[in-house]
Amino acid sequence: MSKFRERFSHIRAQCESAAFRSDIRQLRDKFHGSPLVLYGAGDLGTRTAQWLFRSGIRPECFCDRSGSGIHGETALPIISPKDLLLHYKGANILICSIAHAHDIRQDLLLSGMSEERIFIVENLPIHAMMIEDFLPHVDGYEWAYDFFADDISKEIICNRVEGYLLSAPLQPSQGAEYFDRSAGVMLSSEEVFVDGGMFDGDTAMAFVRQTKGHFRHYYGFEIDDTNYGKAVQNLTGMEHMTLVQKGLWSGEAERHYRTNLSASSKLSESGDGVIQVTSLDQFFADLPDQPTLIKLDIEGAEKEALLGAEHMIKRALPKLAICAYHKPEDIYTLSQLLADYDVGYQFTLRHYSDNLLDTVLYAVQ
Score class of each variant (00 low, 15 high):
K314S: 12
T278L: 07
T242Q: 10
L356I: 13
I298Q: 05
E304M: 08
Q245K: 15
D23I: 09
E254D: 03
F4T: 11
T226W: 10
N159Q: 14
L166K: 01
F53Q: 03
L349N: 06
S335M: 01
N355K: 05
A206N: 13
V208G: 07
G72Y: 13
D330E: 04
G72Q: 12
H217T: 10
H102T: 12
M238G: 09
H127W: 01
I70E: 07
S66H: 03
T348A: 08
D195S: 00
H240V: 11
E177H: 12
P136K: 08
D340S: 15
M130V: 04
D225L: 09
G213T: 13
L44G: 01
W249Y: 08
Y257S: 02
H351F: 03
I313W: 01
V194K: 00
H256A: 12
L94I: 12
R255I: 08
S167R: 11
I322C: 01
P136S: 07
A363N: 09
F8Q: 05
A324I: 03
D151W: 06
R5Y: 07
T359P: 00
P35T: 08
L52A: 04
V138L: 07
D342H: 12
G42W: 01
H311L: 14
F284I: 10
F283Y: 15
L165D: 06
M198F: 01
S9H: 06
A316C: 13
N355I: 10
E6A: 08
V232D: 08
A321Q: 06
L296M: 11
S34Y: 13
P328K: 06
G220P: 06
E190M: 09
D281C: 10
G42M: 01
I131N: 08
I104S: 03
K154P: 04
K3Y: 11
E252G: 04
E302W: 02
Q174S: 15
P35E: 14
S68R: 05
Y362I: 03
G344L: 04
A101Q: 13
G40M: 11
K82M: 12
G344A: 09
